[in-house]
Design a protein around this nucleic acid. Structure first.
Lengths: 209, 209
DNA sequence: GTCTATAAATAGATAGAC
DNA sequence: GTCTATCTATTTATAGAC
C-alpha cells in the first residue's frame, strides 16, 4: 500500500462538514467560529467560502443531514411489515442509532430546541414533519388494530426524543456533576433505549395514564 | 398615584439581570451580546461592568438563581410530611412551576446540557446535586415503605426533566413546524405535568418496566 | 482547489469625566 | 451610579494570486 500524498487533495468539503459539526455541537451556531472550523479541517477560511455560501449555509447542511437521516429511517420503519409494537420499538431504537452515529446530533438538537428552531429551513422542516407523520401512521395502525389506545403523537414523541437526547448529551456532564453518585453512574445506551421503549409501549397499551 | 420619574434610578442591576436572562435564553451565552443586554436594560455597557465583573459572571448569576430556586423547592418537598407518591407529584409540579416563573429557564437549561455544563460553577453544581439528593431521599422513603420499586434516580430524573423542558421550550417551535397538526396543537401545561407525574409514578409503582 | 492578505463589523472590556 | 469614548481582539466574509 503506497503512502498517501502529504496533502490529501479534495475531500476538503467533507473535512469541513465534519469539523463544523464538531464545532457547532461544542459551541453552538453563534459560538462556533469559521476560523476554528478551518483550522480543525486543516484548511483556511477561504476554502470554507469556496464550498459554502456562508456560515449559515454550512450549518443548515449539517441540520439537514441530521434530520434527513432520522426521517429516512423512520419512514422505512413505518412502511415495514412489522407489528405496530415492534415499529414503536424500532422508532425509539432508530432515533438512538442515528444519534449514536452522529455525536454532534444530540447537542445540536438541544440547541435548536432552545433557539426555537431559528436556523431550520424549509427542507429540514419537511424532515421533521416526516418523522412525525411516520409516528402518526404507526399510532393509527395500532389503534385500528385495537393494540393501541389513541394518544397524542406529540406527547409521545416528546417523551421519547427528549430523554433520549438528554441521556446522550449528558454522558460527560453527569460524570462531572455527580461522580460516583447515581447521576454519574454509567448508563448503558442499550439499557436507556430499552427503558424508553417500554415506557412508550406502556402508554400506548394503556398500562399507564 | 404620582407619575413615576422619567428615568427610574437604580434598579439598574435588576434590569440588567432581567435583560440578560432574556438575551442568553434567546441567543445562548456565546451568542448573547453585552451591548444588546445594555440596550434592552436601557443602560450602557459600562453599567454592566459596574455591577458585574464580566459577561461570564453575569451569566453565572442567572444560572445560580435558576438552579437555586429549583433546589430550594425540591428540598422543601423532600422534607414535607406528604406521602412519597405525593412528593413525586410535587417534584414534577415544582420543577414545572419554577420553569413557568422563569421563561428563560428551559432554553438556558437545554443549552447548558448541550454545552456539557461548561459555565456551571461550584455553587450551581451544589444546587444540582441537592435536587438529585432530594429525589433520592424521596425514592428511598418510598422504597422503605414498600410503595416504590427501587429504580435509578438518574433515569427517573431524566425522564421527568427532559420532557418537561422540551415542552416548555417548544411551545413556539411546535406552532411553526406543524401548525394545525398534532405537534402544533396547543398543549396545556397542566395536562403535560399531569402526564409526566403519572408516568413517573407508574415506573415507581411497577406498572411499567 | 488552495492559498495569503485584508476589509469591515462587532465583540468584551476599560478609562475617565461627571 | 451613570455616562461617552475608546482600546484591542475577534468575527464573517472577500479579493486576488497561483
Amino acid at each position: 500500500m503506497a503512502r498517501p500524498p502529504a496533502a490529501v487533495s479534495s475531500d476538503s468539503r467533507a473535512r469541513i462538514v465534519a469539523a463544523a459539526a464538531k464545532e457547532f455541537a461544542a459551541r453552538g451556531y453563534a459560538g462556533g467560529s469559521v476560523d476554528r472550523i478551518a483550522r480543525a479541517a486543516r484548511l483556511n477560511k477561504a476554502m470554507i467560502y469556496y464550498h459554502f455560501a456562508s456560515k449559515a449555509a454550512l450549518y443548515r447542511e449539517i441540520l439537514n443531514d441530521m434530520f434527513g437521516a432520522v426521517h429516512a429511517r423512520i419512514a422505512a420503519v413505518a412502511a415495514s411489515p412489522a407489528s405496530p409494537a415492534d415499529k414503536i420499538r424500532a422508532y425509539v431504537a432508530g432515533i438512538a442509532r442515528e444519534a449514536e452515529a452522529r455525536p454532534h446530533f444530540p447537542p445540536i438538537w438541544l440547541r435548536e430546541i432552545a433557539e426555537g428552531g431559528r436556523h431550520i429551513d424549509a427542507a429540514t422542516v419537511a424532515h421533521v414533519r416526516g418523522v412525525l407523520a411516520g409516528l402518526t401512521a404507526i399510532l393509527d395502525e395500532g389503534a385500528r388494530g385495537g393494540a393501541f389506545r389513541r394518544i397524542s403523537p406529540a406527547i409521545l414523541h416528546g417523551g421519547i426524543i427528549a430523554p433520549l437526547m438528554f441521556f446522550f448529551a449528558t454522558a460527560r456532564v453527569r460524570q462531572r456533576l455527580d461522580p460516583g453518585g447515581p447521576l454519574g453512574a454509567s448508563m448503558e445506551i442499550d439499557a436507556v433505549v430499552a427503558h424508553i421503549q417500554q415506557l412508550a409501549l406502556a402508554q400506548l397499551e394503556g398500562k399507564v395514564v
